[in-house]
């Protein structure tokens, strides 16, 4: 058993199979645990050599805004982890333009490099996935 792969041994059935995985984030951080636990799955997925992308839609864009300080609520600030994803070869981060605009945000407000795409482009990205896991 390996910690890196989240408790599984790579076997013949997963080796060599590359699927398009999208993790769809639509919830704000801290109010609920979904954003944090989504990030934990994303990190594990990196060990499986899949074609992984992250999408931030609706309140999910709040997960990656700059300037998060969580000391006052005594929760772990996990926002720096999004910047560490690149080190795990997870480099496809998509943000829906309409979701940003609806929240008065721009790309400059985000703490990590992303590709801002409009709804139509985001819709196409989702449609071409093999597996979409949403939290």
């Amino acid at each position: 058993m390996s910690d890196v792969t989240g408790g599984i041994d790579m076997d013949d059935e997963t080796e060599g199979v590359v699927k398009k995985f999208m993790f769809l984030n639509r919830k704000a951080p801290y109010g609920t645990i979904y954003a944090l636990e989504a990030l934990e799955v994303v990190l594990i997925s990196a060990a499986f050599d899949q074609d992984v992308s992250l999408a931030f839609v609706d309140d999910g864009v709040y997960q990656i805004v700059k300037g998060q300080h969580t000391k006052g609520i005594d929760q772990k600030n996990f926002s720096p982890t999004y910047r560490a994803l690149e080190g795990y070869d997870i480099e496809k981060l998509y943000v829906e333009k309409e979701s940003l605009e609806a929240r008065g945000l721009t790309e400059e407000d985000l703490l990590v490099d992303v590709q801002v795409v409009d709804s139509a482009a985001m819709a196409n990205l989702m449609a071409e996935q093999d597996v979409v896991i949403s939290f």
């Binding site: 599984i8 799955v41 594990i44 499986f48 597996v131």
Partner: peptide, 9 residues
């Protein structure tokens, strides 16, 4: 572990 979820996918 969470690997079981990714593996299922």
């Amino acid at each position: 572990g969470l690997g079981q979820l990714v593996e299922a996918g």
